[in-house]
Computed example of a mutant assay.
Amino acid sequence: MKRTIQFLFFAWCLIATTTSCNEQPVGVGAKAPADAQVLFDGSRQMLDEQWTYWEGPRLAAELPIKWEIVDDPAGTGTAVNSNDPTAAGGQYGTADIVTKQKYRDFRLHVEFLIQQEKGNSGVYLQNRYEIQVLDGDSTRHGMGTVINETESPYFAYKGVGQWNAYDIQFRAARFENGELTEKPLVTVYFNGQKVHSNVAINKVWGGPYSGLDGGNDDGYGITDRPGGIKLQAEGHPVLYRNIWIKELDLAEPNTDF
């Protein structure tokens, strides 16, 4: 009987789309654990309470946030559209939104849907390190990459008009006496598949318009400041929903889960 139960559990793990075998919720539709903080539930109220425009050097948008709350194409509530008019033409940094709360180590869940081909946005960890959202690009700058640091796991992408999910565990850079001693680390699941494991991030890519420390020593001048979760406006209709985070304290340099 015990062997039968073990087999059934293993079989369930192979076909499950929203929960991994280590009982961590991953994939589209993964619900926030009781000890997690919901950052966006589809409502205008939560958007305004939890988020604001990033006050970077290129900021051109003005509050209130102009990202529109729209009906979920899947018919399951509402989502937010990153197509802020200020960012038309790909002017990233002009209307990106960031959480008001700042974080160090954490577990993050984000769901996104690209409505048109070549749709472009991005999920930023600590408002520094981008996990790319970019339809049609399978290069090291493309979909699902720890941008410019890894190969693209494009095989895991569901395509235009479909909801996708990133599940991310992140450990912030460590410092001693103001000096960088351990690089930031990240593990990423893309639609329930582990695609990056304990990737060391070398720099903030994209320059000062991209995120915190982007203008410091060509992005290598990472500092010890905590940062928020940022979503990028690139002038494309990319939707977001079901965003939650759980703060962690990862003593060891290991983000695998």
Rank of each mutant, 00 (worst) to 15 (best):
Y103F: 15
R104M: 10
R104D: 13
R104I: 08
F106T: 07
R107G: 08
L108R: 10
L108H: 05
L108T: 06
E111F: 14
F112R: 04
F112V: 01
L113P: 07
I114K: 11
Q115L: 15
Q115C: 11
Q115W: 06
Q116G: 06
K118C: 08
K118P: 08
K118Y: 15
S121F: 14
V123G: 01
Y124W: 15
Q126G: 03
N127Y: 12
Y129A: 04
Y129T: 05
Y129N: 04
I131A: 05
Q132V: 04
G136A: 14
S138A: 15
T139K: 11
R140H: 13
H141E: 10
G142K: 09
G142E: 03
G142C: 08
M143C: 12
V146S: 00
V146P: 01
V146C: 03
I147K: 15
E149D: 05
T150N: 02
T150S: 04
E151G: 09
S152R: 05
P153H: 00
P153R: 02
F155K: 12
A156C: 11
A156S: 14
Y157C: 13
V160P: 09
G161A: 11
G161L: 14
Q162H: 15
Q162R: 15
Q162D: 06
A165G: 09
A165S: 15
D167Q: 14
Q169W: 13
F170N: 07
R171I: 10
A173H: 11
A173D: 05
A173W: 08
A173K: 10
F175V: 09
E176T: 13
E176Y: 09
E176D: 13
N177I: 05
N177D: 14
G178P: 07
E179P: 12
L180P: 09
L180M: 12
L180V: 07
T181P: 07
P184R: 04
P184S: 01
L185H: 04
L185Y: 03
V186Q: 08
T187C: 03
V188M: 03
F190C: 07
F190L: 12
F190K: 10
Q193F: 10
Q193N: 07
Q193H: 08
Q193I: 03
K194P: 00
K194A: 01
V195S: 00
V195K: 03
V195G: 01
V195Y: 02
H196V: 01
S197I: 08
N198C: 01
V199T: 06
V199H: 02
V199M: 02
I201N: 00
N202M: 10
W205I: 09
W205Y: 13
W205C: 04
W205Q: 07
W205M: 07
G206Q: 02
G207Q: 05
G207Y: 06
P208K: 09
Y209P: 09
G211R: 06
L212S: 03
D213V: 04
D213Q: 02
D213S: 01
G214E: 00
G215M: 03
N216L: 12
D217W: 12
D218G: 10
G221M: 08
T223P: 02
P226R: 05
K230N: 08
L231R: 13
Q232N: 13
A233G: 15
V238A: 04
V238C: 05
